[in-house]
C-alpha cells in the first residue's frame, strides 16, 4: 500500500499524520513536498493539518494552488482517495474538490478541545469501521472551521449522503450548544459525491492511543487500510 502525506510550507501535523499512518497501517507513508509536479502510483493521499502559507489570505487558499495540488486533483478525479484533516479540509474546499468553505469560527477565537462528532454514514472507505450514529471524541484545533455553503448546496449534499460527521453532544444529539464553531447544520466533515474524498475538521491522528487522551481516531485509519488493502 502506498500512502502519501503532502507537505506544504507551514504544514505542522504532517509528522503526526505519518506517525499515525505508520502505527496503524504498518507502512511508512511517503512525504511529498508541495512543489512536486509528479506523483508515484498511490493508494491514498493525505493533506495534513497546519497553517499552510501561514493561513495568510484565507486558510488553505494558497496551498490549493500549489503545483502538487494540480496532480492531486487530477488523480482524485480518476478515483484516488484523498483525506484532508483540518487545514487539509480547508485546502480541499479552496481547491474546489469539496463544496462549501470554512470560515472564521463564530466565537472568532482559535479553539482547541476534544469535541464529540456523530458518524453520519458508515458506508464509505473512511468510516466503515465506525457504526452509523456512533459518537466519537476527537480534538479540534482551528480558528477557521465554520463550515458554510449555500442552502441549496447544503440540501444537495445532505440529500446525497455527503455529510460524513456532525458536531453533537455526548448523547449524539445535534444541538447548537455542541456546535463549537458555528458550522452550518453542525457539519464537521463531508465527502465528495463519490465518497472518495473526505474533509474533516477534528484531528483523528491525535487520538490513536489512550495515553494521549483517547483512541477514537483509529477506526478512521483502520477503515481506510481495510478498504485499500
Amino acid at each position: 500500500m502506498k500512502i502519501a502525506v503532502i507537505v506544504f510550507p507551514g504544514s505542522n501535523c504532517d509528522r503526526d499524520m505519518a506517525v499515525a499512518v505508520e502505527q496503524i497501517a504498518g507502512v511508512k507513508p511517503i512525504m511529498v513536498w508541495h512543489r512536486e509536479t509528479e506523483l508515484p502510483k498511490l493508494d491514498l493521499a493525505i493533506l495534513p493539518g497546519g497553517f499552510s502559507y501561514g493561513d495568510y489570505l484565507r486558510s488553505g487558499a494558497m496551498a490549493a494552488h500549489s503545483p502538487v495540488m494540480r496532480e492531486i486533483k487530477a488523480r482524485a478525479a480518476s478515483g484516488l482517495p484523498v483525506l484532508g484533516i483540518c487545514n487539509g479540509f480547508q485546502i480541499l474546499t479552496e481547491a474546489g474538490m469539496l463544496p462549501g468553505a470554512l470560515m472564521r469560527n463564530r466565537g472568532l477565537k482559535f479553539i482547541h478541545r476534544p469535541v464529540t462528532t456523530r458518524v453520519e454514514s458508515s458506508r464509505s472507505i473512511f468510516t466503515s469501521r465506525y457504526q452509523a450514529g456512533q459518537v466519537v471524541t476527537i480534538p479540534i484545533a482551528h480558528a477557521d472551521g465554520n463550515y458554510f455553503a449555500a442552502t441549496d448546496v447544503l440540501d444537495r449534499i445532505e440529500g446525497q449522503g455527503q455529510v460524513a460527521f456532525r458536531y453533537c453532544d455526548a448523547a449524539g444529539a445535534v444541538t447548537d450548544d455542541s456546535n463549537p464553531n458555528g458550522s452550518a447544520r453542525n457539519i464537521a466533515g463531508i465527502f465528495n459525491e463519490t465518497k472518495t474524498v473526505l474533509g474533516y475538521m477534528p484531528h483523528p491522528e491525535r487520538v490513536i492511543e489512550p495515553l494521549l487522551g483517547g483512541s477514537d481516531g483509529r477506526a478512521l485509519f483502520e477503515s481506510l487500510i481495510g478498504a485499500l488493502s
Partner: peptide
C-alpha cells in the same frame, strides 16, 4: 477568481 477571493463566500 483564482486566488484573491473565494467566490463561494
Amino acid at each position: 477568481e483564482k486566488l484573491l477571493a473565494n467566490t463561494v463566500i
